[in-house]
Amino acid sequence: MSTPVNSSSSAATSEPAATGGSAVLAWLYVGIPLLWGVSQTFIKALALFK
């Protein structure tokens, strides 16, 4: 994962930077429902191999 640099020329109107911690929270926000959905599908798919 590369660390990006934002040399914004529009810094006056820009929003503050976000940290690695908020990235983790953001990924959890979408990752948890996605994993729940995948696990439900996987459980259903197991019926094929019974």
């Binding site: 934002n6 914004s8 529009s10 109107t13 820009s14 929003e15 930077a17 976000a18 690695g20």
Partner: peptide, 8 residues
């Protein structure tokens, strides 16, 4: 919505 410097 333009990101600030150091935005991840």
């Amino acid at each position: 919505t333009i990101a600030g410097p150091g935005y991840n």
